[in-house]
Design a protein around this nucleic acid. Structure first.
Lengths: 156, 156
DNA sequence: CTCTGTGCAAACACTTTGCAGCTAA
DNA sequence: TTAGCTGCAAAGTGTTTGCACAGAG
């Protein structure tokens, strides 16, 4: 389990930190204690934390860090591919009056959300043992990428 | 296509509006012009609009409506099941440093996002004709429901 | 030494809440 | 008539930006 301490996870974390330092160098980013602390906190968490949660965690060992730095660092991490923004999060609420089965494609550029429908995606099966103790209310396939319009613009 | 005008869609929209009125009555909600206008705008849109976008649309035919009413009405619509909040939207950004293939389960109560992994979900195929002209960068299965902890609380 | 990164503060965007008056039933 | 709904204004939450100083390379 990521984030749990066992005999090897300490070493593995250090390996990841080293890999992260390399990645920073490759991307031309400086290796600052704040950057390292934010990455470590994110990496050691299993909860897909918001900036606020990372901030509270990092501040335990780095009291002078600011929330802005955490915010900026997390965005930088996703810029260089060391982290992701969880699909869909971070936008204003979006509403949908289409009650029929369908799936969503979200354009990462213009943020349009486009319906599509693929019958096989209505009938996904999650192994019951995987979700033991959980109640699944909604089960959907979610795609992100560039929509037709934005793809055209990009070639320009 | 929802939202497009053809020979029958006008009638279909009116059928939907009538069904919506029934639903309001069943739920004990009053049938106000604002409520109808917001629902109609949402229903006629194919873009999964935010409250702001619905607001701008409704204001064209109902200039005195306020953004608050639109916001409240949209939430009411999802309360009675006449609309949904698009999965994941409406929260603060959430970050993830797990670069391995995995899927997300989000608890609608405590908002935790929990990783799970089901190999079959790594290999979903979208029919190419469905996504012609689009670039798919990310393809994932997204579940929502109650997590183990919140499910326990609910029984209490 | 230089230029990126950081911390602070202000601005911004979106949502929620309290309240007084309005209106559908 | 009256309970629910609306509009307004203020407060709350999360994010972004401009700037001056600090520190990594």
């Amino acid at each position: 389990m990521r984030g749990k301490m066992d005999t090897t996870s300490g070493r593995r974390t250090e390996e990841h930190m080293e890999a992260f330092r390399s990645r920073c160098r490759d991307a031309g980013l400086k290796i600052t204690p704040q950057r390292m602390a934010v990455y470590r906190a994110l990496f050691e968490s299993t909860e897909h934390p918001s900036a606020e949660v990372v901030f509270r965690q990092v501040r335990k060992t780095f009291p002078s860090i600011s929330l802005d730095t955490v915010n900026r660092t997390l965005l930088t991490l996703s810029d260089i591919g060391a982290a992701f923004i969880v699909e869909g999060s971070g936008d204003a609420k979006r509403f949908d009056a289409n009650l029929k089965n369908h799936q969503h494609f979200k354009c990462v550029k213009c943020r349009r959300i486009i319906d599509f429908h693929h019958g096989a995606f209505d009938r996904l099966d999650v192994p019951p043992n995987l979700m033991a103790g959980y109640t699944v209310l909604k089960k959907t396939v979610y795609l992100e990428g560039y929509c037709d319009l934005c793809k055209k613009d990009q070639n320009a």
